[in-house]
Amino acid sequence: MLEIKNLHVEVEGEGTEILKGVNLTINKGEIHAIMGPNGSGKSTLAKIVAGHPEYEVTKGDIIYNGESILELDPDERSHAGLFLAFQYPVEVPGVTNNTLLRESYNTIAASRGREELDPLEFDDYIREKLELVDMKADFLERSVNTGFSGGEKKRNEIFQMAVLEPALALLDETDSGLDIDALRIVADGINKLHHEENSVVLITHYQRLLNYIIPDHVHVMIGGKVVKSGGKELALELEEKGYDWLESLATVNGEAK
């Protein structure tokens, strides 16, 4: 489904290389976890897959469903089924959740040749999804992320994922800033949304999310590279040992991080 090949990425116009040759393959129906210390490049990886204009791909490719998506705008990638749950969800004052989601849903539906929903149909549709993340209906009428608590913002991202039903969801530190109850709600939501036709990439600093969502593969990023991949047991090992023991791998495989 997604294949990242030797990906090198710089900050647009600055020349600082952040990703230094990332390789990663994600198949349909899989859950992957990408872990790593701060500044390892894991959030950048998520943003670049979604097409953030701040970064520039200098080498390598991102293949999605067999085709390179490097030339696609962020909205075109979204139409193709890519979803990014933001680490820091953006506030859009005056625009309600309901409005945004109906616009999004219908735009994506149109691009896939599906039928658009009118406001009433959409209302029915969206209310089911609210339950997934245990949110009240008045939430729909609030401006997108404006004045939300950290936890509400993160739940809102998962709610949006539920509504838009992406084929590949990249969840960037969705667990950070959540208390234990909220974490469980979010994790349950993700588990319910996941099925054999879609894939989920969890980007996280901590292992605790993985107590609730069991990944098929775990990757460790350090210094802009994937330095180790393994099964779910790798996460536990990291929890125990930290990242230090892997730091050397980052330098052995090439230039210093």
């Binding site: 979604a50 097409g51 953030h52 204009p53 705008d73 962020p74 909205d75 990638r77 979204s78 139409h79 979803f83 990014l84 933001f86 969800p89 953006v90 859009v92 625009v95 409005t99 945004l100 989601l101 616009e103 999004s104 849903y105 735009t107 994506i108 691009s111 949006q160 838009l164």
Partner: peptide, 16 residues
Amino acid sequence: FYLQQRGLSEDDAISL
């Protein structure tokens, strides 16, 4: 970028 990620075109994002 946030609104584009949710599928809206740049024009529509600005409109919104």
